[in-house]
Design a binder for these strands. Structure first.
Length: 138
DNA sequence: GTTCTCACA
DNA sequence: TGTGAGAA
């Protein structure tokens, strides 16, 4: 546990793989797997991996994307949009299109989830009504 | 505890 | 999309 005494918001804080694994409730194996897939690129201190706050954010984004059903490749696409590695105006226009497209897909996904939740509300209401009716006849 | 690689689903 | 095992 390096930087035990450094404030967690310090920009040069680093994390070990086990710290991040514990924090995000994944195995160290999983974090190495993400690295192998090119989703993160931690620093090295000899053989040991050292994760920067930026690496930590990337892992957080990966796991968030995963929770909403995105593939790792899709996570990469979204994460890369945060990267200001694009410079010329043609690339920037292209990025705006990508963001627009991604936004549209997220919005559709949100509408789908809302509809599914509404469906669950109906099912639950029916169940509760059925229980209440059964109670009346006993 | 961490690294890597190979196999496996 | 990961996990488990074995060896270093």
């Amino acid at each position: 546990m390096p930087d035990r005494n450094r404030p967690s918001h310090s920009p040069d804080t680093t994390y070990t793989i086990s710290e991040l694994a514990k924090e995000f409730e994944v195995t160290t194996r999983t974090i190495r797997f993400y690295e192998e897939k090119g989703l993160i690129a931690p620093l090295r201190q000899g053989q040991k991996r050292l994760y920067t706050p930026a690496d930590r954010v990337r892992i957080k984004l990966i796991l968030r994307g995963k929770r909403i059903g995105m593939t790792l490749d899709e996570c990469v696409e979204v994460i890369d949009m945060y990267d200001p590695a694009h410079n010329n105006s043609e690339q920037l226009r292209s990025l705006i299109d990508t963001v627009r497209d991604r936004r549209a897909r997220f919005l559709q996904q949100r509408r789908d989830i809302d509809d599914m939740l509404a469906g669950l509300d109906e099912v639950q209401a029916l169940c509760e009504q059925a229980l209440a009716d059964a109670g009346d006849t006993q």
